[in-house]
Design a protein around this nucleic acid. Structure first.
Length: 560
RNA sequence: UGGGCCGUCGUCUAAUGGUAGGACCCUGGCCUUUGACGCCAGUUGUAGAGGUUCGAAUCCUCUCGGCCCAGCCA
């Protein structure tokens, strides 16, 4: 037994926060925020950030805001803010404050005026092309704009007119006066405001100018008195600029700490690429069960607990990494194994006739709902003369390692009887279409009074009691682990897995599933975990999504 | 070759000057009314070279490799 309870190691961010609390920085206060732009749906990468920000707040007795960074009205939409709020809540987190960067547009405007008055910002008349040229390159310094020395009065007047909509988009821009020779391109007089005569999802047509993210983000954090601004690595270069703004403005200074974003094998996690998959109909939508979005994973049958546990397992560091999906799937199975109710369902049916079972008769057998959770109780499963089993559970001429049903062999039908295969019925083409078997009435429930053993236990459903349903099997969306950087240099769209979705329309499920609903997880024994699709119903009946397969040792043996 | 950041098993991560540990994956085996779960065992790692030190993944130097930045995107 581990005696020391304080042995568990903290990630580098929690270590810093612990030190800050110890030194009484911010009077020991901890405040974080999750700051998405509402221009797409949240994905598993965002879940990492959500778990970090909300998790840290919880652990240190702090607060965590949800703030929408909605500074670009051309890309943002209320559809996305709604889905984001739903996803955060579904993951199990409650924000303290709900804010929008657009709440601060007036403050930001005043900050800009303040910088102009202090000679730290100017209105530039250069075109975007000229600005790009003046910026210099990675190895050569930029040069100052010919407009960078306008008088404060002129800058104020021009900026006022920009605000009032007196200029066309692109005509002017407000820039911070920092250092055109800086090695950090973000410091080469970054643009603070651009003219955008666009309708904003929250402020409507109030504004003709909108702040750039770089001029909004740091100050928004400052306004909210965020103590630890956690963001991803690519913003490391922006930190000096945020600090510069905060210092020039003389406002509260949050501390930004950057961590590596999540990458996952066999998928893409960039909003732009996910957007493309949706827009070009490579998937059915943001919530397509193959998508790595929170809504897609949810529809697929993932649980919030599984995602949270996954985020805990992957940790938080500063090095770029690519996590194997296997770890995500492990977290999923780990949760589902403990919670999912067991049922029997046959995906590829093979008919069985129990020749010595009475005609027109049936009986109900006891089945355990979840061997991992006794409180889940038991249910009844009907048994009768005609049944279905999985085609894969029968082989006419089995290899040595195959120990399921085959001619002359006896196996156990789970919770039912020992069954022996006597006769194989085929069609004209030689396909096996039916099996004639006998059952041993003495083995009811699955145990033999004489103590004889069988090597295999297989699942089954009673033909006349079964629910016939459509089942969708999902596989990885891409054929390569890193679709964005493949050796042939192909576009990621070319790497889409043509077999990522298989629809099975001839599946037979045990009748207890009649009441199954979306959001409930079931284990089809020996096959995998399934849930009811929340969107598609076939003829008013449920469609089942396969969430993830069970681990399958036989598949490995067979594959050799 | 301007600036910033990063290199620990195949993958994700611990170890913060004192036995390189865990998880996933993989491989054996045990168990089993799910070829699941569980249990046991095993393979594999400090990018490299110097230096400091009784002792280096950790500190120093150099080398090599990787990622990010030249949007009026975030």
């Amino acid at each position: 037994m581990e005696q020391d309870t304080d042995k568990k190691s903290l990630d580098f961010i929690r270590t810093i926060i612990t030190e800050d609390i110890t030194s009484n920085k911010n009077e020991g206060r901890v405040a974080t925020r999750f700051p998405p732009e509402p221009n797409g749906y949240l994905h598993i990468g965002h879940a990492k950030s959500i778990c970090l920000n909300f998790g840290v707040a919880e652990e240190f007795g702090g607060s965590c805001n949800l703030r929408f960074d909605d500074t670009n009205p051309t890309k943002e939409d209320t559809e996305f803010v709604e889905s984001i709020m739903e996803d955060v809540k579904w993951l199990g987190f409650n924000w303290d404050g709900l804010y929008y960067a657009s709440d601060y547009f007036q403050n930001l405007y005043e900050f800009a005026v303040q910088l102009i008055k202090n000679g730290k910002a100017y209105v530039d008349s250069l075109s975007s092309e000229e600005i790009r040229q003046y910026r210099g390159t990675l190895s050569e310094p930029g040069k100052e704009s010919p407009f960078s020395n306008r008088s404060v009065e002129e800058n104020l007047e021009l900026f006022e007119k920009m605000k009032n909509g007196e200029f066309e988009e692109g005509a002017y821009v407000l820039r911070a006066k920092v250092d055109m020779a800086s090695g950090n391109l973000n410091m080469r007089d970054p643009i603070m405001y651009r003219i955008l005569k666009q309708h904003h999802h929250r402020t409507g047509d109030t504004w003709n100018i909108y702040p750039m993210y770089d001029f909004a983000h740091g100050q928004s954090d400052s306004i909210e008195k965020i103590t630890h601004s956690l963001c991803t690595l690519e913003f490391e270069d922006h930190r000096p600029l945020y600090n510069w703004f905060v210092e020039q403005l003389g406002i509260y200074a949050p501390r930004q700490i950057e961590f590596a974003r999540l990458n996952l094998t066999y998928t893409v996690l960039s909003k732009r690429k996910l957007m493309q998959l949706v827009r070009d109909n490579h998937v059915s939508g943001w919530d397509d069960p193959r998508m790595p979005t929170i809504s897609g994973l949810r529809r697929r049958g993932y649980t919030a607990a599984a995602i949270r546990n996954f985020c805990e397992k992957i940790g938080v560091t500063k090095h770029d990494s690519v996590t194997e999906v296997a770890l995500l799937e492990h977290s999923l199975r780990d949760d589902l194994n403990k919670t999912a109710l067991r049922v029997m369902g046959v995906l590829n049916p093979l008919k069985i006739v129990i020749t010595n079972y009475p005609e027109d008769s049936s009986e109900e057998l006891d089945a355990i709902n979840n061997p991992e959770d006794e409180s889940a109780g038991k249910r009844k499963v009907p048994f009768s003369k005609e049944l279905y089993i999985e085609r894969d559970d029968f082989m006419e001429d089995p290899p040595k390692k195959f120990y399921r049903l085959s001619p002359g062999r006896e196996v156990r039908f789970r919770y039912a009887y020992f069954i022996t295969c006597n006769e194989v019925i085929k069609d004209e083409e030689g396909n096996v279409i039916e099996l004639h078997c006998t059952y041993d009435p003495e083995t009811k429930g699955g145990n033999s009074p004489d103590g004889r053993k069988v090597k295999a236990t297989i699942h089954w459903v009673s033909a006349k009691h079964a629910l016939k349903r459509e089942v969708k099997l999902y596989d990885r969306l891409f054929t390569e682990p890193d679709p964005e950087h493949n050796k042939e240099g192909k576009d990621f769209i070319e790497l889409l897995n043509p077999e990522s979705l298989k629809v099975l329309d001839n599946c037979y499920l045990e009748p207890s599933l009649a009441e199954a609903k979306p959001g409930e997880n079931y284990q089809f024994e020996r096959i995998g975990y399934f849930t009811v699709d929340s969107m598609s119903y076939k003829n008013g009946e449920q469609v089942f999504n396969r969430t993830v397969t069970l681990r399958d040792a036989w598949a490995k043996v067979k594959g050799r």
